[in-house]
């Protein structure tokens, strides 16, 4: 594929640098990130290819690949990158920017999970494991997913039926809404 580097195409890299402080142009394609990445095998666009695509401003292929959501946040790539690029931070920048935007996403369940996770934490202050699993499975139209794994946990008292509440939840809600107001200001 032939790609011309225009000013317009540079905007994605600039925007990401604004969010994360990381410069994608420093990548020289050594592939060390991809070679150590545990989920690269499941990515249509591998980490080093993602870096190249970001340099070239190929926004749609980046989004359609789903790479940012397949990443496990394991911190291996940025630990090993000889150019000291924090690749995970860039991926997080992409995630935060696109989390609530509308686009074709092959792994929709990931942003869905993050939104649901935070909704539950906002209410209880802590994560309500069973609630999260139950709602998520319904949303993924896979209601019986992992019941074979849940049963032995249940029998050993490892899964609690009711959510734990933290007294800190009220303070958390206040902080979250203040942060949201600040982010709207920007």
């Amino acid at each position: 594929m032939e790609v011309k580097l225009t000013e317009d195409r540079g905007r994605l890299a600039e925007r990401l640098q604004g969010i994360t402080g990381e410069n994608v142009m420093l990548c020289y394609q050594c592939k060390k990130c991809t070679l150590g990445c545990p989920s690269a095998y499941a990515m249509k666009m591998k980490p080093h290819e993602l870096m190249r695509a970001l340099q070239l401003g190929l926004e749609d292929p980046v989004l359609w690949s789903g790479t940012m959501w397949i990443c496990l946040s394991c911190e291996t790539c940025n630990t090993r990158c000889p150019q000291d690029i924090n690749i995970l931070k860039l991926i997080d920048g992409l995630r935060t920017y696109y989390l609530n935007r509308d686009y074709y996403n092959p792994v929709r369940e990931l942003p869905m999970m993050h939104r649901l996770f935070l909704k539950l934490v906002r209410r209880f202050g802590r994560i309500y494991e069973l609630g999260l699993v139950f709602i998520l499975n319904l949303k993924m139209v896979d209601p019986l997913k992992d019941t074979d794994m849940a049963m032995p946990m249940f029998l050993r008292g490892k899964l609690k039926f009711f959510p734990h509440r933290s007294e800190g939840a009220k303070e958390l809600r206040k902080v979250m809404s203040r942060l949201e107001a600040m982010e709207e200001e920007r």
Binding site: L99, H114, L118, V121, R126, I127, S166, E171, V175, L179
Partner: peptide, 25 residues
């Protein structure tokens, strides 16, 4: 006292500030 969830992988995928705020609480 009254600790809350650290935000795990969901907070830093949502907002950088939130990923700092939840542990700070």
């Amino acid at each position: 006292r009254d600790w809350v969830c650290c935000g795990a992988s969901s907070a830093h995928a949502t907002s950088h500030l939130l990923s700092v705020a939840m542990p700070v609480l």
